[in-house]
């Protein structure tokens, strides 16, 4: 029964948005992935060589000569993480702050539901949605790997990439959730999430091009997610643990703050 508790209720309420985002993300991923055979044409390689290296790097287009390089750049390197981050930030914001600003949180919390339990169940529902998106995208890539000639990437590579993508999404969801739970303000949660996404992206792809700023990459969730090329290199323990640790820390801090403060009217 989908109306049993705040967890299933949150999934029930998010069903349309979740379906829409899943379809969109899988479709974008599949579309870009299916361009791979045409990307291998010599004309394409020449055309790309005409671009300055810095520009390609800024778009995470590091290596376009292998299937793993192309997928890691064009699919998992740019559009997909940005779409996932947008979904995650929106969902993380909605979990507490969105509901509170809409004035609908009072009623639920006037029921026998603890604050921490409600916040954690809501975040769990967001997490389930993110994992579902990452897994379905991974399955779509796996299904395309024959027809689209993804040579050299095995099931393990897609699985590792899927795990990294899910953890990457969770980190941004956790940030928006935590700021929203601590402040009760939608704008603050969205702003923190969007700001972190933009800075994180720049720190991974643009700042390191400047001499003396290469260290910035180490602080970027984009680097934790993409560094070491999980598609070929498998799960990268450092990156995965950083993403997981940041998520856990943010969720714990946000929930703790939420249980201590006044609800906004």
């Amino acid at each position: 029964m989908l109306l049993r508790d705040p967890f299933t209720k949150a999934l029930h309420d998010a069903r349309r948005s979740l379906l829409g985002w899943t379809v969109a993300i899988v479709a974008v991923g599949a579309m870009y992935a299916s361009f791979w055979p045409t990307m291998q044409a010599p004309e394409m390689a020449e055309a790309l060589q005409a671009y300055p290296e810095g520009l390609l790097e800024a778009f995470n287009y590091s290596d376009l000569t292998t299937a793993a390089g192309y997928l890691g750049s064009a699919v998992y390197g740019l559009l997909i993480p940005l779409l996932v981050a947008v979904f995650a930030i929106a969902a993380g914001t909605r979990a507490v702050a969105g509901d509170e600003e809409a004035g609908t949180l009072d009623l639920v919390l006037a029921h026998p539901v603890g604050r921490a339990r409600l916040a954690l169940l809501r975040f769990a529902a967001v997490a389930v949605g993110l994992v579902a998106i990452a897994v379905l995208l991974g399955l779509a890539m796996l299904a395309l790997s024959g027809p689209a000639q993804f040579d050299g990437i095995g099931v393990g590579g897609f699985a590792a990439m899927t795990l990294h993508l899910a953890l990457f999404g969770l980190t941004f969801a956790a940030l928006a959730f935590a700021v929203g739970a601590a402040t009760g303000r939608r704008a603050a949660a969205l702003g923190a999430g969007a700001g972190a996404a933009v800075l994180g992206y720049l720190a991974n792809s643009v700042f390191p091009q400047v001499e003396g700023l290469t260290w910035a990459r180490e602080l970027s969730p984009f680097h934790w997610y993409l560094g070491g090329s999980p598609l070929i290199g498998g799960v990268q323990p450092a990156g995965a643990l950083l993403l997981l640790g940041a998520t856990a820390l943010l969720v714990a801090a946000g929930t703790a703050a939420f249980t201590r403060r006044d609800l906004a009217v």
Binding site: D106, L107, A110, P112, V113, G114
Partner: peptide, 16 residues
């Protein structure tokens, strides 16, 4: 939590 099980609450502006 245990207390609110025994309470019924209605706000004047019932927003859902």
């Amino acid at each position: 939590v245990a207390l609110r099980r025994r309470i019924g609450y209605l706000a004047g502006d019932f927003i859902v």
